[in-house]
């Protein structure tokens, strides 16, 4: 962590509210501390932010560009607006793109009722997708003894990649391929069950926002994701 930034105290306005913060905090963390909700998908407390999903974009006065709240540090005098009609519109369209990208059939999905993507649709008032669904033919990898990976539900948030590398230190997960062909993979795109690096710790299962990674033998009612990873990361920070 950048110590000079951490020792700076900055003041800024978020949605008109005066906020005080340390210089090494992101717009997102300061907003949340102040009870202002900014929707996020790829962000996960305790993991490095990558600014991939673009759901958390906010406006900063004086700049024509939009900034990802999860990966932009606050600066002195910043005036942030988090929920303008323009942002709401963009967020909804980004969600539509995500739903259209792969095969989401919530009714028969093991994460039905516990899914962050599904919940985000509800939260942002998305009742239908105006773009045509792409219906790609994707693989389900059930070779692991305890877990299943289902490409049909993956939103490429890279939480699994980050948790495995940053918290578990195993680096089983990675992303392969470019653009619309990008896929989350285990090891060098080998079956998960054949992985010699996977410790079966289950962290990826619990940070995955959707049913792209789930536990075998769990029904939709049981497949609740737990947040122990954030607690783990927070504790480590204290001891470091």
């Amino acid at each position: 962590m950048n110590s000079t930034l951490a020792s700076q105290i900055v003041t800024l306005k978020i949605d008109g509210k005066d906020c005080g913060a340390r210089g090494d905090e992101t717009i997102l963390s300061v907003a949340r501390e102040n009870g202002i909700d900014i929707p996020t998908l790829c962000h996960y407390d305790g993991l490095t932010d990558i600014g991939a999903c673009r759901i958390c974009l906010v406006e900063v006065k004086g700049s024509p560009k939009l900034f990802a709240a999860c990966s932009t540090l606050v600066t002195e005098g910043m005036e942030v607006s988090t929920n303008s009609p323009r942002l709401q519109r963009y967020r909804k369209t980004i969600l539509e793109l995500l739903f259209s990208e792969r095969n989401h059939v919530c009714a028969v999905c093991v994460s039905n009722g516990h899914c962050e993507l599904q919940a985000m649709a509800m939260k942002l008032g998305l009742t239908h997708v105006r773009l045509p669904y792409r219906y790609p033919n994707l693989k389900v990898d059930a070779t692991h003894t305890r877990y299943v990976q289902d490409d049909n539900r993956c939103i490429l948030c890279q939480r699994c990649v980050r948790v495995c590398a940053e918290i578990e230190g195993a680096h089983v997960w990675d992303i392969m391929g470019r653009g619309i062909e990008a896929r989350a993979i285990t090891d060098l795109n080998e079956p998960w069950g054949a992985s010699t690096s996977c410790t079966s710790c289950g962290k990826c299962v619990h940070v995955c926002p959707t049913a792209a990674i789930f536990e075998k033998g769990k029904s939709a009612g049981e497949m609740v994701k737990r947040s122990f990873v954030s607690e783990l990361a927070a504790k480590r920070e204290v001891y470091e």
Partner: peptide, 19 residues
């Protein structure tokens, strides 16, 4: 009024679309 997921998303019936 589009009533229900099948009308809105294709839902389960659309699972055939990959083939």
């Amino acid at each position: 009024v589009a009533l229900g997921d099948c009308a809105i998303t294709g839902n389960v019936p659309s699972m055939r679309n990959m083939y």
